[in-house]
């Protein structure tokens, strides 16, 4: 049971991170270059999960993704997938909840990169796409790593959204943070401690590695 829950937790975190990495880069790129007047609105939307109580997000996800809602109904009918009280549901919830943790570091990395690097690449005939992949992203490795790790660690640690949308189903939506709560409620302090200590150690190790690697990157670049 313990192992199953831990594996599920990291699987959800990994998938969330992969999804957010692939959609975070284009969104961060757009935010870092756009001159649109709507930019503050989009930036606000991206940042909302930072300040909103997770239960608010969880509540609205329940409302908008439930089987009787338009989106939920659509997914249920065409993809045979239920987005609440399910594994898919907590992935969707995690992606939304961890959004700023991926987008912010990448956006600020892109913005702080010397402008002339991009301009030089353009004058050398390289498209925006080539410039992003061969010049910009390789030179903001530290920001990319920060985004990946923060997203991963944040997803491992989330509670409220997963509880609201996942419903705490063992083996499907019960993640480690929920398991701790359950075990404490059942007065199984030993097991709770096992979960808590494992999470603590893993999160500590991940962050430590990031800071060490980032120090190395920033020594090489800039």
């Amino acid at each position: 049971m313990f192992l199953e829950t831990m594996l599920l937790t990291f699987k959800v975190a990994l998938i969330t991170t992969i999804i957010l990495f692939s959609i975070g880069i284009p969104i961060a790129f757009w935010l870092s270059t756009t001159k649109s007047k709507l930019k503050p609105i989009f930036e606000t939307i991206v940042s909302m999960p930072l300040v909103l109580p997770p239960s608010v997000i969880g509540f609205y996800l329940l409302v908008f993704l439930g089987p009787s809602s338009l989106t939920g109904g659509f997914f249920e009918e065409y993809f045979n997938t239920r987005l609440v009280l399910s594994y898919e549901g907590i992935i969707v919830g995690s992606v939304i909840f961890s959004f700023p943790f991926m987008v912010h570091p990448i956006q600020s990395g892109l913005q702080s990169l010397q402008k002339s690097l991009v301009e030089a690449s353009y004058t050398l005939g390289k498209s925006k796409f080539q410039t992003l992949f061969y010049v910009q992203l390789p030179n903001i490795r530290a920001s990319l790593l920060t985004g990946i790790v923060l997203t991963f660690a944040h997803t491992v640690g989330e509670f409220g959204v997963v509880l609201m949308i996942g419903g705490n189903i063992p083996g499907e939506t019960r993640l480690a943070s929920l398991a701790i709560y359950d075990e404490v409620e059942a007065l199984n302090y030993d097991l709770a401690n096992q979960y808590a200590l494992t999470l603590f150690a893993i999160c500590f190790a991940i962050l430590l590695i990031v800071y060490i690697i980032n120090r190395k990157f920033s020594g090489v670049l800039k």
């Binding site: 010397q114 690097l117 030089a120 004058t123 005939g125 090489v220 800039k222």
Partner: peptide
């Protein structure tokens, strides 16, 4: 024409070499 299509070589004051 976009800078990419103009066939120029631009040498920047801050060199702008790609560090990677």
């Amino acid at each position: 024409l976009a800078p990419q299509k103009r066939d120029v070589g631009f040498v920047f004051q801050d060199y702008a070499l790609f560090p990677n």
